[in-house]
Design a protein around this nucleic acid. Structure first.
Lengths: 141, 141
DNA sequence: TTACGTTTATTAGCTAGGCTAATAATGTGA
DNA sequence: TCACATTATTAGCCTAGCTAATAAACGTAA
């Protein structure tokens, strides 16, 4: 284990970026991209939201989310309804098709990683599991 | 901690992608991109290599590496010499300028992460440190 | 030695996925 | 009412990957 913050930071940065690149390259099913799925999952989990709220949760700028939402709407996975008080916003919700896609797609995409995880020792899995919540805090503050 | 492979896979995928997105957005110094730095670091570490070898180590397709190497050469951070036996290949090595850039850039880029790490408990840091080598294996097999 | 298949690298062109700056539309408050 | 703020979108840029096609060099077998 790296003995100080700087060395840990350096090692973690390289490991994270390479692992993420590897994950992103895994396209078991090409009906939706990872960014689309991520946004869809957010809407599905946190209920109907405005575009700005989704962008904030996903930590992207509003224009980036505009693109993602346009593709999700075009595919029929989300739908917009008008905000009762503010006509600038629209309320975005997952459609049944979107919900179904999310379930299937998530399972399919997790398959590769889960298969890889089988090769790891229980000790390794414990380490990964413990790191998940720390990584969450690292990525979402 | 997620109780099985599938759940761990799902949680880890989301955490990794979000943390990586966050890291990638950190551009303290814009003289080189992360892909360029990663390739440069590989050449620096593993000695003179051919383009194909670098692509294999970085886990990208040859055309992607062609682009990266062209930009690195244009900036004077790598140089090519002819392969003594196979004139299709060229041997790629880091220049002194490239080596210097790598040192400075890595330190600068690590700064943000290191600062963030200071906010974490010793326990969290231990978890991250333990996860690094597991992530390495996950990303590089 | 010539011809053919293989390997290595590059070029061309596509897509995703992010960004900033500028614009449009709506809301809010003096 | 008029100025400012907020929300979303559009336009245009960049990184970062991919596949398909091409060029050049290599190796081998007739």
């Amino acid at each position: 284990m790296p003995p100080n913050h700087a060395e840990l930071a350096s090692a973690l940065r390289l490991s994270l970026l390479r692992a993420a690149r590897r994950l992103r390259a895994q396209r078991v099913n090409t009906t939706a991209t990872l960014s689309q799925l991520s946004a869809l999952a957010t809407v599905c989990k946190s209920g109907p939201l405005s575009a700005g709220e989704i962008a904030a949760i996903e930590r992207v700028q509003p224009p980036s989310m505009t693109k993602i939402l346009a593709s999700l709407e075009h595919s029929g996975w989300i739908e917009r309804s008008s905000h009762p008080e503010d006509r600038r916003q629209s309320i975005i919700a997952v459609t049944p098709a979107g919900r179904e896609l999310l379930t299937e797609e998530t399972r399919a995409r997790d398959e590769w990683l889960a298969k890889r995880l089988v090769e790891f020792s229980a000790e390794d899995l414990r380490k990964l599991g413990e790191a998940v919540d720390v990584l969450d805090r690292l990525g979402s503050e």
